[in-house]
Design a protein around this nucleic acid. Structure first.
Lengths: 170, 170
DNA sequence: CTTGGAATGTCAACAAGGCTGACGTATCTT
DNA sequence: AAGATACGTCAGCCTTGTTGACATTCCAAG
């Protein structure tokens, strides 16, 4: 496994075999499946899907966010998002309020019920993440985050870094 | 960042805040998007989708695998897989040969053309993975893999560990 | 003030790719 | 001969992505 010129310390593993890379690729594939499995199960019981989960997650993260903001973060078309949003609003999980400053905008927040669903979803997902973190150990966690961050598109790292895009003056 | 009772070395970071976990969750979300972006682009030009990519990947990994094997690895129904497989066979990217020992089975392999497409897809994906690995460094890579492996379902780790399920006696 | 363009959000229709259910056929296995 | 297994296919449904068309609102130039 250890090979290549032993000179450069940090560089010695720049020798990445296709096999190592393939293993990383498959790790992503299988892990992502596990990652989404629990929320998927919870949601399918209620007639929702992964798209609803994503919307709920990011509305929870940034209460009062606008549809356009959400669009950028999720990377889908507004029509696609709208369908999901409409059912969430109809079902009373999300509240949409017309912007005070700019009446074209809609500000999105979770209702009580929406927050409750969000909690059950993120509890499940956090449990799995916590389990993985504890199994792998703290140093592994740091590496995990570093690699994932390096794997994102630049554009997405922007949203990833921006913890909140809350808008306080409606 | 360093906190908790300093006694237990490996245990000191068992204190995982919801914020840390949420950050990990979003890292998975955004990174997976980047991870699939390049192949998606290549494929959409040719009228294929992510489902085709997955089939091609695992046929390449395990040449001669059977339909049933593929079904288990991919975790979809045979009707769903069949739709994808049919177009790949019609387009001459995948070859399906009747099993020698068991004539009910079909053994799947990539044709020349299929292998060429596979190469262009995995080149793109490996480039991104390589970039992430190099940016993050060798220690981060080990951690990355450890966390992902701990995040999989048991059942999936079985397929992940099984490098090949090649069947040599057709 | 008005008017035209830009931003925002909604409605309609279509496609990909999941799913279930039902069946047919060939081929083991007992 | 009978039942189980592997594979393919038809039909129909759902979620979630897409494009196109359109209504509303805002803002800035005339």
């Amino acid at each position: 496994m250890a090979q290549g010129t032993p000179g450069q310390t940090g560089q010695s593993l720049l020798f990445l075999t296709d096999e190592q890379l393939r293993k990383g690729i498959e790790a992503m594939f299988f892990a992502y499946r596990g990652f989404t499995a629990d929320p998927d199960r919870i949601l399918s019981d209620q007639g929702y899907g992964r798209a609803h989960h994503r919307a709920i997650h990011f509305i929870h993260r940034s209460p009062g966010t606008t549809v356009n903001n959400l669009l950028s973060v999720l990377g889908v078309t507004k029509q696609s998002l709208n369908r999901v949003l409409r059912t969430l609003i109809e079902d009373g999980l999300v509240a949409s309020t017309v912007g005070k400053r700019d009446k074209r905008e809609r500000h999105l927040t979770l209702t009580e019920d929406g927050a409750a669903l969000e909690r059950s979803l993120s509890d499940a997902q956090r449990d799995r993440m916590r389990h993985a973190y504890r199994t792998a150990g703290p140093e592994a966690v740091a590496g995990f985050r570093q690699v994932l961050e390096a794997m994102m598109d630049e554009e997405m790292r922007f949203y990833y870094d921006a913890l909140k895009d809350r808008i306080d003056e409606r």
